[in-house]
Amino acid sequence: MNTQASAQPAGRTETKPARRRRKIDWKDFSFNAINYFILTILILITIYPFYYIFVYSISDSIEAQKGVTFWPAGFSLEAYQKTLTLPGIKDAAIVSLSRTVLGTILTVLCCSFFAYLITKEEMLLRKYVYRFVLITMYFNAGFIPWYLTMKTYGLQNNFLLYIVPSALAGFNVILIKTFIEQLPASLEESAKIDGAGYMRIFTSIIFPLSMPIIATIAVFAAVGQWSTWFDNWFLVENPKLQTLQLVLYTFLNQSSNLANATTEQLNRGDLVRTLTPQSIQMTITMLVTLPIVLVYPLLQRYFVKGIMMGAVKG
């Protein structure tokens, strides 16, 4: 983490003094003013929707119906309490979490080990093996063939569908391979003289040394796993295996049903103060978004670095 942090500003300070101007002239000033102004507006446009659902989710449900703009309308955490007890939410959270953790581990192990093997020039048919795997990045059989193949493999209504097909990704392999290739070869050679096999060299030397790129891939994969829902949408009906994303989507689409349910409750006088479907929607959205919003700024550096490596390679 530290090396990344220092690497970036270093590049920046080089250009900084060169571009600094001695005198303040109005042209430069107005350029800056306009630039900062537009960028600030863009930040607000990006951040406001997230802020809005947050404020709405902690507002008092009934008062929020009159309209929320900037401040919460009243304050209540009832929506969170209620949402967490909704049927299916807990299972979905467990499924989403496990697919994120297991899927990430699997893809990191597969991609890094394969990338290591590919860096070994003595491998028989190395070029062909590499191309055979990489080329899968560029074609796609299409929807129905994919659907039928997954069904044939018995992955329908199966948790493995979430983690197995995404285990080997060509793009990740390129990134890790590029990283391993710039590691000093002497380390590996000395281990080899000591009699270590490929497996041993990978687990005790290459993998630990590749941590910067592994971290990048892991974050990529984790965010991807957390956000993927189409496999769930098309191939998994089992309510025990629903992901949080899909539960959110179902709630968004069922808002009318939910609205009816709450008004019914109101009419029966079951609840003195009740929750509106909007409040529940906002709260679920919040719960699904929160992990990404929390994890993301910390790991943004890794992302950027990874992408830049890819860019240099390409």
Partner: peptide, 16 residues
């Protein structure tokens, strides 16, 4: 940030 959220969340945000 918006790049990392799913289209479902974008939909939820757009809807709100």
């Amino acid at each position: 940030l918006p790049h990392y959220i799913s289209w479902i969340i974008v939909y939820a945000l757009a809807f709100s």
